[in-house]
Design a protein around this nucleic acid. Sequence first.
DNA 1: GAGTTGACGACTT
DNA 2: CAAGTCGCCAACT
Length: 123
Amino acid sequence: MVLKSNSSNSGSTKMPTQDNFFEHVYQVVKQIPYGRVTTYGAIAEFLGSKGSSRMVGWALNSTKYNLENIPAHRVVNRQGLLTGKRHFGGNDTMKNLLESEGIKIEANKIVHLESYLWNPSEE
DNA sequence: GAGTTGACGACTT
DNA sequence: CAAGTCGCCAACT
């Protein structure tokens, strides 16, 4: 799961103090300012796992299980494509949210992504 | 412990 | 220009 499977508790050895990776991603995403977006790659790089943007997407996936104020809709891929929209129910929820923030979307893609791009280090 | 999956990214065919 | 392939790294089965 994404949901914690019990059984596993290994008992020990490592208890995650708190899922670092995920928590880290959450915090970064939560800090994305209104009207701004960021990319998986940027976050991955910021986390130090540069190149493993997949992990970011993975972490984001848990986002919905965590239900928090995580604006996952502000995270898009390198092309500014709303790849994650399918995880929002397959509707245009994501697009709507972004547009309501003043971001222009065209063909499920952010227009002038560079203009909206936000750097985690700016946080 | 090994194999599959994944909201990506960049390169190659 | 579109589709396929490899690479990253961590979690899940």
